[in-house]
Amino acid sequence: MEIDPWVWWLIGAAGLGVGLVITAMPELGMLAVGAVAAAAAAGAFGGDTLVIQVAVFAVVSTALIAVVRPIAARHRAQRPQLATGVDALKGKQAVVLERVDRSGGRIKLAGEVWSARSLDTDRVYEVGEEVDVVDIEGATAIIM
């Protein structure tokens, strides 16, 4: 009993799929798609077209790797970073508890009392005003 070439391509695609799951290498998934395309070519053109099958496998696999890989790399690089600690406080709003000027004052930020000073040395913030935290220097919030 002879097995049709398209079946061999599907077995190869399944093997690559298993490799993808085990190693988490996305390139193996792209090669598996190329093998499925080669299986489709074998089914469409018959089993005697090994050159066409290999060409379809190579073209589809190479195209997927050339197109999908750079897109995935860009998405990986653009992941938002989770801000923690004082970095998470930058950009938050606070309420002035004691008058804030260039020499200091107090604000309520994220439920805690912080020392603060004005970013603009000529600006004064009065009690009750809402302000934005632009930076944290040590234990002092810089506001505007």
Rank of each mutant, 00 (worst) to 15 (best):
G43K: 04
T62W: 12
G47C: 03
T62V: 12
Q53F: 10
R69D: 05
L50I: 15
A44K: 03
G43Y: 11
V68A: 03
V51R: 09
A55Q: 06
F57Q: 10
V51Q: 13
G47P: 09
L64H: 01
V51K: 08
T62M: 12
F45D: 03
A58D: 08
A66W: 10
A37T: 00
A73H: 09
A37L: 01
T62L: 15
A66I: 03
A40H: 00
A41P: 00
A39L: 03
T62R: 03
A38H: 01
G47W: 11
D48P: 07
V51L: 15
S61H: 10
A63E: 11
A42P: 10
I71A: 04
I52R: 09
V54T: 14
V36K: 01
S61T: 11
V60I: 15
L50Y: 14
L64K: 06
V67F: 14
A72C: 05
L64D: 07
G46D: 09
V67I: 13
T49C: 02
I52Y: 08
V54L: 15
S61I: 11
V54W: 14
A42V: 05
V36I: 14
A39V: 02
V51A: 15
Q53N: 15
T49V: 09
A55L: 14
V54R: 03
A39H: 00
V59I: 15
D48T: 12
V59D: 09
A63V: 15
A72D: 05
V36G: 03
A44I: 12
D48S: 13
I65T: 15
V51I: 14
A63K: 13
V54K: 06
L50D: 06
V36D: 02
G46A: 08
I65V: 15
P70G: 09
T62F: 13
